[in-house]
């Protein structure tokens, strides 16, 4: 089983502390949602866990091996990463751009590309130049790019930003099934708390580079935590069908 552990992670940029002495652990089969206000350190945390942003102190270990010591290519085979607002600089066709995600596996695999395009509802767009896609379509294509190599650990930074409700829920369900059925470890920063509540298996609530809460969404997400996290009155409402988050003005 894949395991990921961060111990005493501290990261500074430009004299500012972005992550402060964070210790976290996760294993395959989890779909972890990272939530928190803008500037909480979510993106930095994901990049640091992905081994792309070396911390000032502390270590990140993947299967008990420090990621800092792994060759970039070996790490790339095990871990997928998608930054926020990912874009492509050349007008590649969608299918060619998605196939770039197979680079760590060395080579092309049309069957995998076809499967992931079908999964992400992109078959109709496969020949279109990525630079002509709408923001939401591009976000879906980028998520497909991150999924195509099927890594054991996947870190995605705001993969649902810009997606319409149907595609946002579909994408989140896909991330959940990767974790639940294929026992991958999926860590995603997500702003839609109702999606987090229903689909994530675990929540990391981050503010000012510190972890305010770590646990199952239903257990952790309550009015008190959300108020502290976002400086806004919030309530967790329940009905027969389930629970949802309501931000009261």
């Amino acid at each position: 089983m894949t395991s990921l552990a961060a111990t005493n992670l501290t990261l500074m940029r430009g004299g500012r502390v972005i992550l402060q002495d964070l210790s976290l652990a996760a294993t395959g089969g989890e779909f972890i949602a990272v939530i928190g206000p803008n500037g909480a350190g979510k993106s930095t945390l994901l990049a640091a866990l992905a081994g792309l942003s070396p911390p000032d102190s502390g270590t990140v270990q993947l299967d008990a091996v420090p990621v800092a010591g792994l060759a970039a290519r070996d790490l790339a085979r095990q871990r997928g990463y998608l930054p926020q607002n990912a874009r492509c600089e050349w007008p590649l066709a969608v299918e060619r751009m998605v196939a770039l995600g197979l680079a760590p596996l060395g080579g092309e695999d049309d069957a995998r590309v076809d499967a992931v395009l079908a999964d992400c509802d992109l078959l109709a767009l496969r020949k279109q130049a990525v630079t002509t896609l709408s923001g939401g379509e591009l976000a879906r294509a980028m998520l497909a790019r991150a999924l195509v190599a099927d890594p054991a650990v996947l870190m995605v930074d705001e993969p649902l930003a810009g997606l319409d409700p149907r595609h946002a829920w579909e994408a989140a369900r896909r991330l959940r099934s990767l974790a639940m059925e294929q026992r991958r470890l999926v860590i995603a920063s997500i702003h839609d708390l109702n999606i987090v509540l229903r689909l994530a298996t675990r929540v990391w609530a981050l503010r000012d580079g510190r972890l305010l809460a770590d646990g199952a969404p239903e257990a952790v997400l309550d009015g008190a935590l959300l108020g502290e996290l976002f400086d806004m009155k919030a309530e967790l409402r329940r009905s027969g069908a389930g629970a949802w988050v309501d931000f009261a003005p």
């Binding site: 792309l52 290519r73 070996d74 790339a76 990463y81 998608l82 930054p83 874009r87 600089e89 680079a103």
Partner: peptide, 20 residues
Amino acid sequence: GPALDALSLGELQAASLGVD
């Protein structure tokens, strides 16, 4: 060549795909 292809996704994604 292959590294340049990965780089069309930007430096961060290229690095995540194993490009040094």
